[in-house]
Design a protein around this nucleic acid. Structure first.
Lengths: 194, 194
DNA sequence: CATTTCTCTTGATCCATATCAACTGCATTT
DNA sequence: AAATGCAGTTGATATGGATCAAGAGAAATG
């Protein structure tokens, strides 16, 4: 359970966490299990958790005035998921996060997170690297949105996150790319044809 | 010159930097002046600087295979600009950054940045807050890209960054929103009509 | 295991935005 | 002040992707 998180931190920091440091990390997290369709975050509530995905798959999405869902993020094993804006400022979130598959998470709260960053240098480092990676990926995704055609978006997804394509149903992938399921189906056919 | 940066850090951290700490910050930065059209970063080169804009205006953009520019970021007074991905990993950038107006910057390098984060707690805090804000804004922009119509994008820009509309020519704003200048012009007319 | 409910596909049509083109200032250069 | 060029506007036309509709599997549910 916690071992998965430990290995993850070792990997992204390219180091090995000392046992005495990992104790703090263990104490800051608790296990949370979600069945498919259960929620980690409901819109209009304050985001309580920052979650590390041990097993399973989740999605983060908003719902527009016409009731349509727009998926803004996915998370699978070894990913983090939360609404940082809401968590940090303790204001209601515009997003929902729910489980696409039965999932096991390690969750922590804002307070514990703040303490943890002071207690564990490894964790601080990891958080920093995470921020960087996140910001780089976000930059690329913004660019994709204003630059790419439907087919290019799909190809980009195949290149950047092939796991997602195996893992999530096509209508969700379509939403994530900002396409309709119909267009997604046609584009996929096109791309696979060559 | 440096006073602008000092006030900025005080403001975002909601605190006052002690003099002895600000000395480190002053030492880590140097002044760089750019005339309109001069570059801070050329694509295919490694990004050297993280820059704080004292006065002026800059843009960050990529150029696609057909030679079209796509603006991914603007920066004006009190904004930071850099290609973090390139700076951090010391790999060639896909972006250009140039001055849209004559500009005065305070620039620092990766090495100095790393030292600075250890020397100044205020700076570390600021960097952290910056990361958060950046990641929240990026999330929203991604959502905007997959959710909004042309008119909604323009309205969103008016709401989120009204300074940009005064400051940058319309064709650049169009590129930033992922629209053609023609569509931009029509949408603007629409919006201003009411 | 039958029934209901999703998901995906395919076709027909529609619409928002891109593209192409011409014209009008402004601003910059000579 | 004439010449050149660029930013913005407006109109006509084209097109990528959305929408609407129907059917076929696949999967969840009683």
């Amino acid at each position: 359970m916690f071992d998965k998180l430990r290995k993850y931190i070792d990997r992204v920091t390219s180091a090995v966490i000392p046992d005495e440091e990992f104790v703090f990390i263990e104490k800051a997290f608790e296990v949370k299990r979600l069945r498919k369709r259960q929620f980690l975050l409901h819109q209009d509530t304050v985001c309580r958790y920052m979650a590390f995905v041990v097993t399973g798959a989740l999605r983060q999405y908003s719902i527009d005035e016409d009731g349509f869902e727009h998926i803004v993020n996915f998370a699978i094993e070894d990913w983090w998921i939360s609404d940082r804006g809401s968590l940090l400022s303790q204001t209601p979130s515009r997003y929902n996060i729910d489980a696409v598959e039965d999932s096991v998470l390690l969750v922590t709260t804002l307070d514990k997170l703040n303490v943890l960053r002071e207690q564990s240098l490894s964790f601080l480092k990891m958080a920093h690297i995470l921020d960087q990676n996140h910001s780089i990926a976000a930059q690329k995704r913004i660019e994709a949105g204003i630059t790419m055609t439907a087919e290019e978006k799909y190809r980009y997804l195949m290149a950047a996150n092939p796991e997602f394509i195996q893992r999530f149903p096509q209508n969700m992938l379509a939403s994530y790319l900002g396409l309709t399921p119909e267009t997604m189906s046609r584009v996929r056919k096109q791309v696979l044809a060559r």
